[in-house]
């Protein structure tokens, strides 16, 4: 008779891929705002990948459900108190908006007022979805997830993941689905001063490190149950946590990007460094979400 956690890795995959998706979307939105033409190629790739990642995540989530065929009932049996219910709405809404947003990019129709409406609402729902991920966990009241910090952690992790992914795409020069014409435009516009990915990268990793450390400290002072859960998390996943989440996923990327900025604060990281650090951040982000979700479900004896 073995106890198994109610949620297996498919929920992690949903929250991870969903996080990458909305991160990418928000980066695409940001780049669109920063310089529609200059970053057209990257913004477009972000726009295309966002619904794909969120969609794949949702598919994992559906397969985790006992009755996936009833998924849409979350819309008509909507429970106003349930973060999961809200999440359903947000995800559906975001999927629709991000698909339109991608379609408009594909059609190169990014200057009309319709685009701006989609751009605006897409941004709002991307944020909703990103916040929903952590809020869902926080709402369940389990000791590791309680207290609201998980919401911020998951959201920043998602933004960071999106940033790292776009950096990776940029450095590896990926250009799926982007027309030659668009690619040329991008090339011609890329000379002058532009958006500094390294700064964003450095800020987000630093922010996440601060959040993670404050979270861990607050856990250790969060009462018996919370502290016990946190200790259990470190007992079970301590190596992974320190190695992948903290060192590889945050500290090394911070040091790397900082080094690059100190050397020349206007230029970007070298290609090699960007590829390596972005990959580390993505792996670290996945590990982070995996551990928090797995360890949060650990069953403890009920005190009496």
């Amino acid at each position: 008779m073995e106890w198994h956690a109610p949620w297996d890795i498919r929920v992690t995959l949903d929250l991870f891929l969903g996080g990458l998706g909305i991160g990418l979307f928000l980066l695409s939105v940001l780049l669109t705002a920063y310089g529609k033409n200059r970053y057209r190629k990257l913004a477009a790739i972000g726009a295309y990948l966002a619904p794909v990642l969120v969609g794949v995540g949702v598919l994992f989530l559906l397969s985790e459900l006992g009755r996936p065929e009833r998924f849409l009932s979350t819309l008509y049996n909507f429970n106003i108190q349930s973060v999961t219910s809200w999440g359903g709405i947000f995800q559906v809404a975001f999927m629709v908006l991000s698909l339109i947003y991608a379609w408009l990019y594909f059609k190169n129709n990014t200057s009309g007022s319709f685009f701006r409406v989609v751009w605006g609402f897409g941004t709002i729902f991307a944020i909703f979805v990103g916040v929903y991920h952590g809020l869902l966990l926080a709402s369940l009241g389990r000791p590791l997830w309680i207290g609201g910090m998980v919401t911020a952690l998951f959201f920043v992790s998602s933004l960071l993941g999106g940033t790292a992914l776009i950096l990776l795409i940029k450095e590896l020069g990926m250009s799926w689905g982007v027309s030659q014409k668009m690619a040329k435009e991008v090339a011609s516009a890329s000379d002058g001063k532009g958006f500094n990915f390294t700064v964003l990268f450095c800020i987000l990793t630093t922010l996440q490190l601060i959040l993670v450390l404050s979270w861990q400290v607050s856990l250790s002072r969060g009462g018996l149950e919370t502290a016990a859960t946190a200790n259990n998390m470190m007992d079970q996943f301590g190596g992974l946590w320190i190695g992948f989440v903290l060192l590889a996923g945050l500290i090394i990327p911070i040091l790397g990007s900082l080094y690059s900025l100190i050397k020349d604060r206007t230029s970007e990281m070298s290609k090699g460094m960007a590829v390596v650090l972005s990959s580390l951040v993505i792996v670290g982000g996945f590990t982070f979400k995996y551990i928090v979700i797995a360890a949060g479900q650990i069953k403890f004896p009920i005190p009496f």
């Binding site: 109610p6 985790e64 006992g66 009755r67 979350t74 999961t84 709402s139 009241g141 389990r142």
Partner: peptide, 19 residues
Amino acid sequence: KCIGCKSCMQACPYEVISF
């Protein structure tokens, strides 16, 4: 109505819901 999402199992402080 149950979709088998197991949120209730996560939320229940008493581990008395089974899937």
